[in-house]
Nucleic acid binder design. Structure first.
Length: 789
DNA sequence: AAAATTGTTGCCAGC
DNA sequence: CAACAATTTT
């Protein structure tokens, strides 16, 4: 691998700057479709080839498992191509299949295998498999390395149990869902129960803090973590144990983070600790060390899980030189869009300009104008689906280049998929729905995984209780209650009680025999874990537990379906074992199931129409996109309509949707929609009115006739702060040296305080915190600001 | 202890 | 209109 990779030649100057970056911090502001994945993969390759960085010193954080997998594949291919030239003097794709495979596996073995590339959750669960036994929380709770990962429904049932059984509170006043949400938010902000109570000292806050505390007890009792813990625990561990932090800080010399605008405070802390070893800025040493983040504040759509895009905006202050755009060496902007046709981009740019909380960035088209955007108003949701599928059929028929996989239907909520599915089925068009009911959320899958979890982690009482009487073994409520109480009294895990036959005989009465049989079976499996691969354990469970037999006896179609799904799970284990050479353990597999998302199964080159939410579509692209259900209350969602910041997030979501389209974009809505079973009238979304009309065509006219002269200005009623002339009475703010902490007066938002300054010189923007309105980013040249003393 | 029936609540997004 | 929970029946 001595020759230089020539890939640098097909990059634009800014991409090239990003890819060639070696040490120190760099923020890559990457607009939609600007080739950021390419920048990330090429940079990793460049680090290894050009700067001789050892792959095991690289940590790359992606937003989904799918993105991680694709990134690894692309790097693998880059190296294989490189080696083809240096070893065979031949182009990779001209080599015989046999040599290609050989090259790829060689690259895998020497490079890809050692790369740490994955989501925050999967990477950190891997770190915790090494080090969680060195962690102790503020109450002295500890965990072992074979911990379980509880999913959202596990977490919610724990909360429910605590609220109703332990604290005897009404689950109406403290509904488990929202309490769980509060706890999750607390964790994502790094708050312990005590700290949360300090923040929310009212009655409700005190109760939630108490639930949170008990919830942590339960997690620890089960030797389990929830999703949020996978991030929070490593942060706390790093803060309390310098040796552990030192190890990982030393190992991960080059850190890359994709979709940085969607990181939350805890994730930021983690990156910060790993990069800086928790030291003061003056102590930092960037020799052979870098932190490289990629993101786009306009695509920040996960604030509901505490993502905070000001983290991205602060990057240069936190890690970099903090200099203005023109002078900075710690930021690169990618504004050239290689994905969408000009009409689509123009619509997207126009829409997002209605947001005040943003940094100016315009996507520049590199492709042709393309076809007009099509807008359709349907009578109801069924007619809307009819329209979309009609279009899909005719387009597919007319264009031999298109296949079903080139189409996607994007909506705001999962519930909207139904009518589209119905009509796709009726037309015999293959499709896949991403999200909704996940494979691993199915009852039969959770049951079987329950066995595996109980075997991998005997302390996992939740899983144990799930399977102890599944299938029916005559172990009933009374027996389980006795056992639970006993475990409680003795302060041990239920498994310890169960392991002792005499105890079981006294406690379980009539059911003792079945309980003991069950326990013996699980013990046997636990011993097998040492010597057998997970797939064989699973096979034994299916044979010996009677689970499949029980399904078989039911004899209906639904049961047959379930058996097939269980079989599918077996295939998944086998596949996992083949792919994951380094961690082919049962625990590794269980972690992968807990952290998998539906998206991960969406394969490239699949020839089926994709249906998914706008959130899921982030990072994807399709030649033809249908953005449906553009109605007030649905999109933007009614819960966002009275909150300016939330509304802006909805608009960003719409921006994400539009920028998924490469060639053609269809926008639609219904005039009437079924909701909760009743028909409700629907009004077209305000986002439609924020698009330039002359870009839209309808079923009646080639292009919508637009009103008088003022073609490209925003429609009446929007607050377009970039339109200097009609929002500000002509006078922009004179060039003042703004400073953080300045109190200012804004014409429509009132008094506020400057919290950040972005850029410098003549093109600054400032972030201002307005009481009650939250933080906004404003360009003082455009919006009139007055300094108040 | 399990099945059948009636009642209730919820649709925002997801690792 | 669903899924899900609580309640009653067998």
């Amino acid at each position: 691998m001595t020759t230089t990779i020539d890939f640098l030649s097909h990059l634009n100057p800014n991409q090239r700057r990003a890819v060639e970056h070696f040490c120190g911090p760099l923020l890559v502001v990457a607009g939609a479709g600007s080739g950021k994945t390419r920048a990330l993969t090429y940079r990793i390759a460049n680090l290894i080839v050009e700067h001789k960085v050892n792959p095991e010193n690289i940590l790359a954080v992606t937003f989904t498992n799918k993105a991680a997998r694709e990134m690894k594949e692309r790097i693998q291919k880059l190296f294989a191509e490189q080696m083809a030239l240096s070893e065979f003097g031949e182009r990779y794709d001209l080599l015989p299949e046999y040599d290609q495979v050989r090259l790829r596996s060689k690259v895998y073995k020497h490079i890809i295998k050692d790369l740490w590339c994955g989501t925050f959750h999967s990477l950190l669960s891997r770190i915790l498999r090494f080090d969680i036994d060195k962690y102790q929380d503020e109450k002295g709770r500890t965990w072992q390395r074979n911990f379980s990962i509880f999913d959202e429904s596990d977490a919610q049932s724990l909360v429910k149990e605590i609220v109703t059984k332990q604290l005897n509170l009404s689950d109406k006043k403290f509904n488990p869902r929202s309490v769980r949400y509060s706890i999750s938010n607390a964790k994502n902000q790094g708050l312990s129960p005590k700290e949360y109570e300090k923040e929310e000292p009212n009655y409700k806050g005190r109760v939630i803090a108490e639930v949170y505390n008990c919830y942590q007890d339960k997690l620890a009792e089960n030797n389990a973590l929830d999703f949020d813990d996978l991030i929070l625990v490593p942060v706390r561990l790093f803060q309390q144990n310098e040796q552990v932090l030192g190890y990982w800080h030393h190992k991960f010399r080059h850190i890359l983070v994709d979709e940085y605008q969607d990181t939350n405070r805890t994730q930021y802390q983690l990156i910060s600790l790993l990069t800086t070893f928790g030291e003061q800025k003056s102590q930092w040493n960037w020799e052979n060390r870098s932190v490289f983040v990629v993101g786009d504040a306009d695509q920040s759509i996960y604030s509901f899980r505490m993502a905070d895009f000001t983290i991205l905006l602060d990057f240069q202050q936190d890690f970099g030189d903090g200099l203005a755009d023109e002078d900075t060496r710690s930021m690169v902007k990618l504004e050239e869009n290689y994905r969408s046709c000009e009409n689509i981009l123009e619509a997207a740019n126009h829409l997002i300009e209605n947001n005040t909380q943003r940094i100016d960035k315009i996507l520049k088209a590199t492709r042709g104008e393309g076809e007009e955007i099509f807008y359709f108003q349907a009578d109801d949701e069924v007619a809307e689906a009819d329209f979309a599928i009609d279009k899909i059929r005719s387009l597919e028929k007319e264009n031999p280049d298109l296949n079903w996989g080139n189409f996607s239907i994007l909506y705001r909520t999962n519930a909207q998929s139904r009518p589209f599915e119905d009509i796709l089925v009726r037309n015999g068009i293959p499709y896949t729905v991403v999200g909704g009911l996940k494979f691993y959320d199915r009852k039969e899958i959770k049951d079987v995984l329950g066995y595996l979890r109980a075997i991998a982690n005997p302390a996992d009482t939740v899983s144990l209780l799930r399977v102890i009487n599944t299938p029916r073994r005559g172990i009933g409520k009374a027996t389980i209650e006795n056992l639970t109480n006993a475990a409680q009294e003795l302060g041990t895990t239920m498994w310890e009680i169960l392991s002792d036959e005499t105890s079981v005989n006294t406690l379980a009465g009539r059911s003792a025999k079945s309980v003991n049989n069950f326990v013996r079976m699980i013990s046997r499996f636990q011993q097998e874990v040492e010597n057998l691969p997970a797939s064989e354990i699973l096979q034994n469970i299916l044979d010996e537990s009677g689970y499949v037999q029980d399904l078989h006896n039911q004899g209906n179609d639904e049961a047959e379906d379930r058996i097939r799904n269980v079989q599918e799970l077996y295939n998944a284990v086998r596949q996992y074992e083949e792919e994951a050479e380094q961690d082919a353990s049962l625990q590794g597999f269980l972690a992968s199931t807990a952290l998998s998302s539906d998206l991960d199964n969406l394969k490239e080159g699949q020839t089926a129409v994709s249906l998914m939410t706008l959130h899921s579509s982030k990072g994807l692209e399709f030649p033809i996109v249908f953005l449906v259900g553009l109605e007030q209350g649905l999109f933007p969602n009614y819960r966002s309509m009275n909150d300016p910041a939330a509304l802006e997030e909805e608009r960003r979501l719409c921006y994400v949707g539009i920028t998924r389209a490469q060639e053609r974009l269809f926008l639609s809505h219904a005039r009437e929609r079924r909701l909760y079973g009743t028909r409700e009238p629907a009004v077209r979304s305000q986002f439609l009115d924020e698009l330039p009309r002359e870009l839209l065509a309808t079923q009646y006219s080639r292009k919508i006739a637009y009103k008088k002269g003022d073609a490209r200005s925003a429609p009446v009623g929007s607050n377009n702060t970039n339109n200097t002339n009609n929002t500000n009475n002509g006078k922009p703010t004179p060039n003042i040296n703004w400073q953080v902490g300045d109190r200012v007066m804004h014409k429509s938002f009132g008094a506020g305080e400057i919290t950040h300054i972005f850029g410098g010189g003549s093109k600054v923007s400032v972030a201002i915190k307005f009481p009650g309105l939250g933080q906004k980013i404003i360009d003082p040249r455009v919006a009139k600001l007055k300094k108040i003393e």
